[in-house]
Structures are given as C-alpha cells and as structure tokens.
Design a protein around this nucleic acid. Structure first.
Length: 269
DNA sequence: ATGGTAGCAGGGCTA
C-alpha cells in the first residue's frame, strides 16, 4: 500500500484553517502533521475539520506560541507528548497508526517543532539559541543509539543541515538555522539514531531543496532565498519504502500564506 | 546584534 504523510508549519491553525482544508482536499495525504498551531487545546478547530475525512486528530497546544497536531484518515493510538528543556512547550506529539491502516499499521509518527533559536548564534548572548542547542542535545539523548521499529519523524526542525539546503551556504554560515554547531548537531543525532533523511535519500546534493521563504522578502519566489527547515525522516526498516518527497511550493504563494510550504512523504509499503 | 513581515494579543515577544 501507499502511505502519504504531509508536514506543514501552518503558523496559526485557526487563522489558516481554510488552507489546511485546501491541502487536505487537494492533496489527500493519509496524515497531516502541523506545527505552530498557536492554539490552546480547548480552541482547536475540530468543528471546521468535521466532514473533511480526517476525523482522527491529536494535538498539543498552548496559548499564542508553538503547538503541534496530527490529523489522520486512519485511527491513531497512544497519543504521546514529550517535554524538552524542562518546559511545558508544545513542541512534540506522537501517535501510532492503528490496524485500520493496513500495511502501515503500527508505524509510529513523531511530529516535532524545534525552537527557532532567535537571531544571534551565540549561546552566551542569546538564551533562545542556547535553548535550541539544548533541545537538539535532548533530542540526541532521546534517540539514543538506534531507532527501533517502523517510525516516521517529521516537522519543522528549524535547521537547514546541508550546503544546498540554503540559497547561499557561505552567506548563511553565521545565520541561525545554518551555523555549523546546529547543522552538525542535527546530522549527528540523525545519524546516531539511524534516521534516513528521505528528501536527500531521493534527491542528493547539489540539487537545492527549500521548504521555507521568509515573510520579509517582498518577492520571495523571484528572489528564492529559501531554506530547507522542514524534514521527513524514516527509520532504517522503512528506508526501502521511500518513493517521493514533494514540496508544495505553490502553497507559499496562496493568499495569506504560511511562510513554510507543506512537505509530503510517500512510502510504498 | 540592520531592517524587512507576520501572528497573537492588544504590548512585546516569537518567528
């Protein structure tokens, strides 16, 4: 069977619920993982989703910031939320696909929103950068030496790890999201746990891949100063099932868009 | 350690 999982930093699920419904209707992924929902749990727009065909929803939100959610065509089991850095930030949620998912049953889905890290890439001068590095360190400790069983990890990891994951490697070496301390941390923790970077598995460097374009660029598409901040990783036993990773760049050009484009992973199980 | 835009909340923080 074919399984599709889309990851999208939506930057307010309430403001952009119509864009969520558009992606669900037009792309029809089996699972949609959202980040930056910016929505307390008691305000999650469940009613608007009713009738969309995605009746299985888990979410972990907070007022104003952060927030993650998983919407699924298939039943989800064992919603779990991990805390990092001794905060109650809503930056992770996971669930397991139920038996109704057929060949995909039992796959664990992890949805992450890694801290952006502020502007100054110095942990002594910038507490937000220190938080980001600490978060990555805890992610490394959580992954341990090897991820076991079929699992998918998606999300806005706020790091563009490779040279061709940014529009200019040289110009971004001291820009938060592409500094060596961040890119090495992310690649180290991914490698130690055995996760496969699905996009680069299929499309190695030097081809450019971007998933985010700043709001501050008036002509984002022509300038095309993008970064690959959004990722889809699979566990080793799913490596052979990866068929496609697609960035829906068009969505960045929709009216009142998120600054992130949806990224869709396709597996053949 | 420029400023540029956006969301939430209704000021200033976060991205």
């Amino acid at each position: 069977m074919r399984l599709t999982v889309t990851s999208w930093n939506i930057n307010s699920v309430r403001l952009r619920i119509d864009l969520v419904l558009r992606v669900l209707a037009e792309q029809r992924p089996d699972v949609l993982c959202l980040q930056e929902t910016k929505c307390p749990d008691d305000a999650f727009p469940l009613k608007a989703l009713r009738g969309s065909g995605y009746e299985h929803v888990v979410y972990a939100g907070q007022k104003g910031y952060n927030g993650v959610a998983i919407l699924s065509r298939f039943p989800l089991h064992t919603r779990d939320v991990m805390g990092f850095c001794e905060r109650q930030d809503a930056r992770h949620i996971s669930a397991v696909l139920g038996p109704e998912a057929g060949g995909a049953a039992g796959i664990v889905l992890h949805d992450f929103y890694v801290p952006a890290g502020g502007d100054v890439p110095d942990r002594g001068l910038n507490l937000k950068f220190a938080h980001k590095l600490d978060f990555l360190q805890e992610l490394r400790a959580w992954g341990g030496r090897r991820v076991s069983g079929p699992a998918i990890l998606v999300g806005d990891l706020n790091v563009a790890p490779l040279e061709h994951d940014v529009w200019s490697h040289k110009q971004l070496l001291d820009v938060v999201s592409h500094t060596p301390v961040e890119t090495e941390a992310l690649e180290t923790l991914r490698g130690e746990a055995g996760w496969i970077d699905a996009a680069r598995h299929l499309t190695p460097e030097p081809e450019k891949i971007y998933t985010w374009w700043s709001y501050r660029s008036p002509d984002w598409s022509a300038a095309d100063k993008g970064r690959r901040l959004d990722h889809a990783w699979v566990s080793p036993d799913l490596a052979g099932t990866v068929r496609k990773v697609e960035v829906l760049r068009d969505a960045r050009g929709w009216e009142r868009p998120s600054d992130h484009a949806p990224v869709t992973l396709t597996l053949e199980l």
